[in-house]
Every structure is written in structure tokens, then in C-alpha cells.
Design a protein around this nucleic acid. Structure first.
Lengths: 257, 257
DNA sequence: CGAGCGATTGATTTCTTTCAATATCGGTGG
DNA sequence: CCACCGATATTGAAAGAAATCAATCGCTCG
């Protein structure tokens, strides 16, 4: 259980004045539906942590969950260890996204979160957040919505696992593309913050398969790749439905009366 | 868009006095952490619906989400239709479990819910639930917990898709077993409420593969099957790790500092 | 410059699907 | 009560997709 690169909670969060109001991501983050005054109250309990470097853990499974986080810059991966000790990547976190919501139920983090590159996070003490949520219905609503939306993301991800390797990778790239563009970045040209192996792990494939798919896509003129630099040249959408409808998968609407 | 067997909301919920207090599932349902007085207030807004028959929809994707549900008896499946119109089963609901939580964010149900057999559900009007949640912190907490736990279930389900067909089915059976036993039913002998095709769909496999796996398990002496009747004769746990650790799936802890 | 990791590419094997045929179950009507 | 029907389940053979095994390449960092 190596602790190299592990930044303990005593790493200290700096109580610099955090300004959600001017933050580029306020519209996707907690302040989304808060008014001026409410945002001010939120700012008061948000702290900014010192930067995480590549390989640093933001938290580990089993850590006491005393705060949730929002990513300001960089990229994270979240993962679980299965009973064999193998890493199972459950998601990637891009700037403006919240981390740790899935821990609401328990007092311990159920997963690991590691920086894929130098990253900045805001942290919000849970006790204070709960207090504030008690006081601000809008915030409460926003938390429910976020949680509920995450559930949809997972369900969508689930659907992908029924798909072919080709579909999985293309959906993955389209998803990244959408998330980048939603944040005002290019939808067709971006840098992957994760390795081929991490993509493969996330998608339930092998490194080799992912690599082969990238070259296949490139040969098909769908994209240009150079290491982690991606440029989508043609909409990948057509790749997403190459397979016939699986047998036995009739619409549920057709049922006996 | 056939509506055969569709029970519209005007189907009418009966406002018989619902008694959560004596309900067999109160410990897994919303009343879980409520005290006596709070439970009484909850009971006041819970309605009981008329029975659903096999094939009936509890709700459909796009329906206005005015209430959430709790299953009292029977079994449901929830599913999405993908862009090809193919059914994608996202989960099965057993007695004592809540349905519709994933719709909190939006005002419309994102999925379909259909009865696999004759089923009874309680329904709770969302507006009233929100009011009550505003008033009862315990209830609010319980809702967050349930939502958060569902997120874990999804993540677990996701992990399964990285696994072999054998592992998927055994994990599925173990999961059912655990859920039944948690409710005081036998952990080793139970009736599957769903068809082979539905299991296959849920697990991302084909009917044939599932069928073959059942016979393989039977030949290995792991279980006895007769149609939908299952009897686990030996712990299936050993089946869940037949494969070597996938390459490139090293524990995340081993990273460069 | 060499070590080492990540990525790519090729050859082969394994697992799951697909296609196809048959069997069994549950219900219905004669 | 039994024969028949459709739906569901099982089983077999062949094809296909991705994993595994193995080798090479290229880049980055001491």
C-alpha cells in the first residue's frame, strides 16, 4: 500500500478568497441555480487546495469523506480496486465537474481519485454544505439534480458496454468532445488527458484494441491522431450504429394486453 | 407507439390507509430512518395503486414525473429504448425497492418501467414528498443516501461489463441472492422473475450464451435449474475470478511519484 | 546515450455471437 | 382431457470480434 505521491488531508487547503462568481465554470458547478446572495454564502465555505500533480491522489477509497470537490483545471480519473487489486476506472473528471457526490450516502469515499495531470480543485466541507443546503432550497435542488444526472451518465455508460469496441471508443470520444465544447473549448480538437491503457480500462477493452481502433479510425479518415492529440475530421456519429439490432431486443411497448 | 396494456395515470390510486409502520419493507424503504411521528406524516402522502399485471407499464419514458414509487410485491424491469428502438434493460426492481429516483433532476421519466409479474406499488406524489423533505431532515438524508447508493449499484453494474460472460451471470445471481436474503427470503433458492432473454439483455449477452452458462453451471454442480427456479448448491464466488488480472490493470497506487 | 514506459503492429487463440435446428413449457380450444 | 400453438429455452456448428502473446518502435527522462 504505497503512499507515494499521496497528499494527506493535512496538505492544507488555502482559504484564499474563492470567487465562484467570476469562475468560468459557475454555470455547470454548484452556483448554477443560485442567486447573487446565495452564491456569496457558498463562496464562504469553498476552499481552494494546493495543486495536485500527476499521480497524486485527491482521495482514496476508505478516506473519511469530509468534503466534496470541484475541479477547476487539469483532469482526474476515479477508479475502484476490485478484489484482485486490479484498477477499474469508473470515470474521468474534467474542469467544472464535481467529484465525490457518490459518497453522500456513506461517510467514507468509495473510490479513488487521482490526478492525470497537474490539477486544481476547490473543496467544500460537507458539514457546511449540508448546513447551507438546509438553508438554501435552490442549492438542495441543485445537489439532487446533479446526483440524478450522474445516475443517467452511468446508465448511458452502461448501454455502451453492450456495444462493439468501435462504438465504445467513438462514443467515448464524442462524449469528451461534447464536454469540452460545453466548456467553450474546441469540440473537434483536444488533448486526451489519459493514456491508451486508461481509455481501454475505462471502456472494458485492452490497450492493443484501443490502439488498433485509433489507427482504423485514422485510416477511415474519421480523425487524426498524434499521441494524445486528437482532431475529429468527420462526424463519428455514423460509427455508432454499425450493428444490426440485437435479436430479442424488441421495444418493450409491444406486450400482451 | 402502441398503448396496449398501458395504465394511464387516471388508472387511479386508491387512498386506502397505507401503513408504512407495519410494512415488511419499512427498513429498506423511505421510513428507514424516520421516527414514529415522521413515519405518520409520510404515510399521509403515500398512496397505493391498483395492481399491475405482467406487461403493464408503471410509467414510460417521457411521462410527466409526478410521483416516485416503491414496490410492495412482484417485480419490475426498467429499460431504455436506444436510437434503434431496441430495449436496453437497465435494472430489475424487487419488493421494497424505490423506483423513479433517477428522475429527480428532470420533470420527465427518462426510462420505462414494466411489470414482470403481477405487482403492487405504493406511489408518493413528488410535490408532497419535496415539501415533506423540506420539513424532515431525516427524510432528506434518506433520499440522498438512496440516490447515492443507486449510483454505486450502477458503478458496480458497470464493472461487470468488463467481466467474462461467466462472471457476469454469477455476479447477477449472487446479487439477486443477496437482495432476496436481505428481505428475509432464501438466499439459495429463488424464482427468477425475468426470462433468459431479459437476463441476457441486462448483462449485455445473448439468450443463447445465458442458456449455455446455466447448463455449464449446472454441470459444474454450482446450481440446479429448472426453468426459472434456481437453487444455488455451492457458493458461486469462485466463479467470479477465473480470469487472470487484465494486463495494464495495475493498482492505481503504483504510480510515479 | 541508454533505459524504460507507452504505443503500435502482427500472429494466434479464445470467447461470444450468429445462424440454425430442436425441445419444452404454458395456455387455449376442441 | 388432450392436441396444438406460440413463445421461450436449449443445443450444435460456424463465423467473427477482441484478447492474448510477442515483437518492435518511439519518445521522454535521467
Amino acid at each position: 500500500m504505497p503512499t507515494v505521491g499521496y497528499a494527506p488531508s493535512s496538505r492544507g487547503s488555502i482559504r484564499t478568497p474563492v470567487n465562484c462568481h467570476d469562475c468560468a465554470f459557475k454555470r455547470f458547478c454548484l452556483p448554477a441555480y443560485l442567486d447573487e446572495a446565495e452564491t456569496v454564502r457558498l463562496e464562504a465555505i469553498v476552499k481552494r487546495n494546493r495543486p495536485l500533480h500527476k499521480g497524486d491522489h485527491l482521495f482514496r477509497a476508505g478516506d473519511a469523506m469530509q468534503q466534496i470537490y470541484a475541479l477547476r483545471s487539469g483532469a482526474l480519473k476515479t477508479y475502484l480496486l476490485n478484489q484482485d487489486g486490479a484498477e477499474q476506472i469508473t470515470g474521468f473528471v474534467l474542469p467544472g465537474e464535481l467529484i465525490g457526490l457518490d459518497a453522500f450516502g456513506s461517510s467514507l469515499f468509495p473510490s479513488y481519485a487521482m490526478a492525470l495531470e497537474t490539477s486544481l480543485v476547490c473543496s467544500i466541507a460537507l458539514t457546511e454544505l449540508e448546513e447551507l443546503a438546509d438553508a438554501i432550497p435552490h442549492l438542495r435542488k441543485q445537489l439532487f439534480n446533479t446526483l440524478s444526472r450522474e445516475l443517467h451518465v452511468e446508465q448511458e455508460h452502461l448501454n455502451h458496454n453492450r456495444a462493439s469496441a468501435e462504438q465504445r471508443l467513438s462514443m467515448f470520444l464524442l462524449n469528451l468532445s461534447a464536454r469540452y465544447s460545453r466548456r467553450g473549448l474546441s469540440a473537434v480538437k483536444f488533448i486526451l488527458p489519459m493514456s491508451r491503457g486508461e481509455i481501454a480500462n475505462y471502456l472494458g477493452l485492452t490497450t492493443e484494441t484501443v490502439s488498433r481502433l485509433f489507427t482504423r479510425f485514422r485510416l477511415q479518415g474519421l480523425l487524426e491522431v498524434q499521441g494524445r492529440e486528437i482532431q475529429l475530421t468527420r462526424p463519428l456519429f455514423w460509427v455508432t450504429t454499425p450493428h444490426p439490432v440485437p435479436a430479442g431486443a424488441l421495444p418493450g411497448a409491444i406486450i400482451h394486453a
